[in-house]
Write a protein that binds this DNA or RNA. Structure first.
Lengths: 237, 237
DNA sequence: TAAGAATTGTGATTTTTTTCAATTTTAAAA
DNA sequence: TTTTAAAATTGAAAAAAATCACAATTCTTA
């Protein structure tokens, strides 16, 4: 079933189109030869908040958490980037250190593009800045939306929202017709929702008891998405 | 005294440089003649979330809250824009409806630039897209930072942070050496911090009793900013 | 000026969330 | 497979925050 009209999934995803795909040939020619693909094991750090940015990263396959760690050592996941998304460009465009850290949530294949090549193409491109402006502006919508949710919604609601959003992300790699499994540690889930892992477990138990989800080990399968939408607070508007 | 080294004030402000100031003459020539300045009374709405964007707004003088209202009717202020800042460009660049609403917090003078003129200059400019990319990327830092804070910090900490940030915003219009007064309704303050006005009042009383602030009617004067920084959680790292 | 409305402030109660302490289960390594 | 470590789960207590009810003050405006 589609979420269209039920849940504003677009307000939770950065990606509208792929930034690098189908660039005019003369522009992609400045990038493709310099892309160095690399395999990252699960949980590997790609870059660290506060460090100098040396390039951007294109996720060819995999999932990456973008997160900040506060002074108390608590991790907050800002966004989960999926296959096809570009990361690391904020630091370079803002001429600032990385505003957040990035680490893989599963085995991933990621291509690195050195800063110089990226900036060089950006200088001489008309399409790339346009796409970046569009993407960055849409990201504003997403982050703004997140702030409202963190400021006002309960943990239970936020978990429901997160499950809906994550389901979409894990949907991409699931064969048509098969069950979609959200495969994340409880801690990662807690750091997305912004609470402790104990609370996550509690509400997952509740959802399980209500028949909304099933769990298979750590993997979560959403069985009644309408119910989740309802809990999320978006359903009954 | 300076906040440098004590508190990351840059992580709370969008503005790094003015986007429109000192543009090359041939570029500003496409904007300035079309700018229509208008006076807004306190509390007037400039644009509404979800509506079609017809242009951008330049705050010549005044303060504007950017906010979202959730399905329960609760308002969350995402950002307070000050004199010299540009608003409304996200919607146009993302080709989406306004992601948030904007309303004045005090009497303001704001110039409107029609979408067509803005896009026209953007097409033919090299400097404007560069500045917008930089500003938007920096905004990512700011919003990302806000998310972490909303997700993990207590109301008391968030109020302390907000007072430090707001003090900087009200500083701009305060003559050198004079006391800086934060002049906001308790509700607006509550909607910045993300709580009810009762909680704001309670913590303000506490801060007052501790000699950290004084109040003069609704106006708040910060007397001991070091103490505020300490409460904010940034001081003792 | 007085009436009414809006804002500010206080107290008490309820709900939510966090934290602490264990136990069970699962995953990883020898 | 056994051992060990890590992750998931449950329960109870403490702390934080939201909510409700209402009083006091300030602001509007008739």
């Amino acid at each position: 079933m589609s979420l269209a009209g039920l849940f504003p999934i677009d307000k939770w995803n950065f990606k509208t189109q792929s930034i690098l795909n189908n660039l005019p040939e003369n522009e992609s020619a400045g990038l493709l030869p310099y892309m160095q693909e690399q395999r990252y094991g699960k949980g590997e750090i790609i870059f660290r908040e506060g460090t100098r940015a040396s390039g951007i990263y294109f996720i060819k396959k995999g999932k990456v958490k973008k997160y900040q760690v506060d002074q108390a050592g608590k991790e907050q996941i800002i966004y989960v980037a999926n296959t096809g998304e570009l990361i690391g460009y904020h630091a370079i465009l803002a001429e600032e250190p990385y505003p957040d850290s990035a680490a893989t949530l599963e085995e991933s294949f990621i291509a690195f593009i050195p800063k110089e090549n990226f900036l060089n193409v950006l200088e001489n491109s008309t399409e790339l800045p346009r796409r970046l402006l569009k993407t960055l502006s849409h990201e504003f919508t997403v982050l703004t939306n997140s702030i409202s949710v963190f400021a006002h919604r309960s943990v239970r609601e936020r978990l429901a929202i997160s499950l809906i959003v994550l389901r979409e992300k894990f949907k991409a790699e699931t064969p048509e017709g098969k069950d979609i499994f959200i495969n994340l540690s409880r801690s990662d889930l807690a750091n997305i929702v912004g609470t402790g892992h104990e609370n996550i477990v509690r509400f997952l138990s509740e959802f399980k008891a209500a028949g909304i989800i099933t769990t298979h080990g750590r993997k979560i399968c959403v069985k009644d998405i309408r119910q989740l939408v309802k809990i999320s607070g978006y359903g009954n508007v």
